[in-house]
């Protein structure tokens, strides 16, 4: 009798642990915005000058502050359109506002004909510009930057 009582409780806790295991295996897996795993190097190449290659895009100002998107070499679309990588809820952003894309080891920002323009630091982006690490890119009320 005592055995079945304890046995059921053990099984109940095993279920909890199993559920937590599922949760844990999901922690680093694809779920929208990924946590960057320390010590997990994705880019083997380093850009010239010894600086690290950017590995994530961080929103530093605006409604989405704190959002991080890990960079995997694919271009990043920014705008109000639902299919953008970073969907902005911003009256000053266009439907397709800007694109960040990778050429070689560097990331370039280009404006996709937005109404209010895209600014790299203080300069308006008219042609694709190289984005250094930590330089703010302003799109409407949102500011993003690349970090390693």
């Amino acid at each position: 009798m005592q055995l079945t009582r304890a046995g059921f409780l053990v099984l109940l806790w095993l279920f909890v642990l199993a559920a937590l295991r599922v949760v844990r295996s999901d922690l680093y897996a694809a779920s929208g915005l990924r946590v960057s795993v320390p010590g997990f190097r994705r880019n083997s190449k380093k850009s010239a000058g010894g600086s690290k290659a950017p590995r994530q895009l961080v929103v530093t100002h605006g409604a989405l502050t704190g959002t991080r998107i890990s960079l995997d070499g694919r271009p990043i679309l920014i705008g109000r359109a639902d299919d953008s990588t970073l969907v902005l809820d911003d009256d000053f952003a266009s439907t397709r506002h800007a694109r960040l894309s990778m050429r070689g080891t560097d990331w370039y920002v280009e404006d996709l004909g937005s109404t209010n323009g895209t600014y790299l630091d203080r300069a308006k982006v008219t042609a694709p510009l190289r984005v250094p690490l930590g330089t703010p890119i302003r799109i409407g009320k949102t500011v993003i930057e690349l970090r390693s």
Binding site: G73, R74, L77, T85, S101, M102
Partner: peptide
């Protein structure tokens, strides 16, 4: 640079 111009998966 792979200029895949389709919607990138985030």
């Amino acid at each position: 640079g792979t200029p895949v111009a389709q919607a990138a998966t985030s």
